[in-house]
């Protein structure tokens, strides 16, 4: 026991907690508890990323996974039921089959994975080492991640920003910022046209409650 490095013990402890949380998420029926546990899952992964020295990734995971997505899932949950309906065992067999096959494939692939921190792995050799060397000479920033993200891979990051913009735009087009989707009014060719929601607002209100 004494010859196991403390970081490895931390990693194993965090992985064990991830496993427990994942099983709890699968077993639970209360959607509120599931959303909260998903936040816990993200936070545990963030802690694990820190222990793997991937601080930037951990930061993003903590902010997006544990923060924003929990809030958005809660917002989505408010629009639906609070409890998940149990699914019949026969309907779960297909998913179990797919999950088992995928899991076996992943375990099979472990043998080909480079060791943690391997300097000769594909991620660390080739462009990776070039970027680290070029950052020191051409960009002169202490944080290589920022240099790669914003300068060497500026195109990719531009693409990511546009993706986020499109996600926001899509949501706005579908739902609207004020939740007034379907409550619009327009007058093409002089005739009065209203969204479906507005014309039968009473029945809609009845459906909601």
């Amino acid at each position: 026991m004494s010859n196991i490095p403390p970081t490895l013990m931390l990693d194993m402890g965090l992985m064990a907690m991830l496993l427990v949380v994942a099983f709890a998420v699968v077993r639970l029926r209360s959607l509120f508890a599931i959303v909260m546990l998903q936040g816990v899952y993200s936070l545990l992964s963030a802690a694990w990323f820190v222990s793997l020295d991937a601080v930037d990734v951990a930061f993003t995971e903590a902010a997006v996974g544990a923060g924003i997505s929990t809030v958005l899932m809660l917002g989505a949950m408010l629009l639906t039921e609070r409890e998940a309906k149990p699914v019949a065992m026969q309907k779960q067999l297909g998913s179990l089959f797919i999950v088992t096959i995928t899991g076996l494939a992943l375990f099979y692939a472990i043998g080909d994975m480079p060791a943690f921190g391997d300097a000769h792995s594909a991620a660390n050799a080739y462009v990776g080492s070039d970027y680290i060397a070029a950052t020191k000479n051409n960009i002169i920033l202490p944080n290589v991640v920022t240099a790669v993200l914003a300068s060497f891979r500026g195109y990719d990051t531009f693409g990511e920003v546009v993706v986020i913009y499109m996600a926001g735009l899509g949501i706005l087009l579908l739902l609207g910022l004020n939740g007034n989707a379907g409550k619009w009014r327009a007058q093409p060719n002089g005739q009065d046209v209203a969204g479906n929601r507005n014309s039968n607002a009473d029945s809609e209100a009845g459906d909601k409650s």
């Binding site: 958005l72 917002g75 949501i171 910022l177």
Partner: peptide, 16 residues
């Protein structure tokens, strides 16, 4: 963009 998009998504869901 990120701030506005996140707030926009929250506003859109929250308003409903």
């Amino acid at each position: 963009t990120v701030t506005s998009a996140m707030v926009a998504i929250f506003y859109a869901f929250g308003s409903r």
